[in-house]
Design a protein around this nucleic acid. Structure first.
Lengths: 261, 261
DNA sequence: GGCCACAACG
DNA sequence: CGTTGTGGCC
């Protein structure tokens, strides 16, 4: 390889304001070229821009009050920023894209779905279908597209601590796993899985489970997927569990991929 | 004098749970024999007893959910603890008494009153009248009674930064000042005033006034009054403004009296 | 279990 | 401004 390095990270922060010290400390230590945030939970006017800018980052934000919210921090200025997945509920901030260097970043916070027989779950499936359509439209063989974020889908049985018990869950059932697979089939590779075929790597730990990290009771629902052309250039992928030892951690933890472009 | 020292303090903590580090640090530093707390805002089962007990204190608590709540921490075990002022709203935790050494401690959180033409203000006057009746009944010439707490009354014009502007306030009008005077007339002395005739000593600073402490924009509404026999033995009285420099201070600050019994 | 909003209280 | 509920969300 030995191309120019590009580090892309994704982190569901569960409130960027509440998590500010954790996020900035993490950026200072790992200096991602691109950091995709989800669940920022803040309207754009109140996004804490200064701490990011002081670290030398540009910011593209897409937020709403109390819920959801995505943002992209990047060393290089993002170009062609778009906000909102067509067909979604008005004002709902779960999807944004930006072009950074040669890569199109697609930052998503996929609806969780609450319960399989809720309207929210139906909306999740609908949302995934529209996302699928978006990729069908967007992907060209040699394009560099990076889809990352909190996808709220556990791809396979090795991505959850207890697949038996959670069979049928809104994040782990044939329907959503199928939807995930169909999106990958448009031409994407699960880059973390490419580097780590072994089971037991998780990015999410339920707050309600005591000592979930040390007991390994987690879920892999945050992902970074890349078009084949781009994925071919990934040098490494890792989940950083260190922020889970901080004072008031998020229930998610950062996922990082290092590319050599 | 040179009798046995007895330090009694009173502190409206505005949530004993939120203020725990401030309260315990203060106790560690000043080692009161008796500490009366108000606005503990916690039911008895959830009172954080351990931190007090680790410091060598007994606890008598009288709390309720979300509002009010009083407690007495003391080095010597309190005897004859009573809870509730007769005639008050059921479950309302604003009054408790305890015998510690030779002194009967009366710890009160007098209703604030909200607005002069509210039912709450009528209730405040009624409450003060019942408190007056309680003292009429309780006080005997040579008895050692110590009434302290958040009294929510500014006794005189020198006890508030702007008496003009606050004339008529529920904590500073002829009616409540009269009620306070009548209670003192049952045989009590305002011990802080005994030691400090000069104006400008305050125990309460409105959260909504920026930098109220340094600008001296306060109210003296927390008091320690003692029967004449006991007041004769007070050696010093002081308001400790130091806790106001802590991380998340209460809007009140401790008042301390040192007796020599 | 922890985030956010909101309302009540002072 | 800063407590404490409550309820929605995950």
């Amino acid at each position: 390889m030995a191309g120019k390095p590009l580090r892309i990270a994704t982190f569901n922060v569960n409130s960027v304001r509440a998590r500010l010290p954790i996020v900035t400390a993490w950026m200072r230590e790992h200096r991602p070229d691109v950091l995709c945030l989800q669940e920022t939970k803040v309207v754009d006017e109140q996004f804490p821009r200064e701490p990011f800018e002081e670290l030398g980052y540009h910011l593209a934000v897409h937020g709403q009050k109390a819920y959801n919210g995505v943002a992209i921090a990047s060393v290089e200025k993002p170009r062609e920023v778009t906000r909102g997945l067509p067909g979604s509920i008005a004002g709902e901030a779960r999807f944004m894209t930006a072009r950074i260097r040669s890569v199109t970043i697609v930052n998503t916070y996929v609806p969780q779905g609450q319960d399989v027989d809720s309207k929210k779950y139906a909306y999740k499936l609908d949302w995934l279908e529209r996302l699928h359509a978006w990729f069908e439209e967007a992907i060209r063989p040699r394009l560099r597209i990076c889809w990352c974020g909190d996808i709220n889908i556990v791809p396979t049985e090795i991505d959850i601590h207890d697949p038996k018990r959670n069979e049928g869950h809104v994040c782990f059932n044939p329907e959503v796993r199928g939807a995930f697979g169909r999106i990958l089939d448009t031409g994407l590779v699960d880059v973390f899985r490419k580097h780590h075929p072994e089971p037991g790597h998780y990015t999410y730990f339920d707050y309600r489970v005591r000592a979930a990290t040390s007991r390994g009771i987690g879920w892999r629902v945050d992902h970074l997927c890349a078009t084949k052309a781009l994925a071919a250039r990934s040098a490494d992928a890792w989940i950083d569990l260190a922020p889970r030892n901080a004072e008031r951690p998020s229930d998610h933890t950062p996922l990082v991929v290092d590319f050599e472009l």
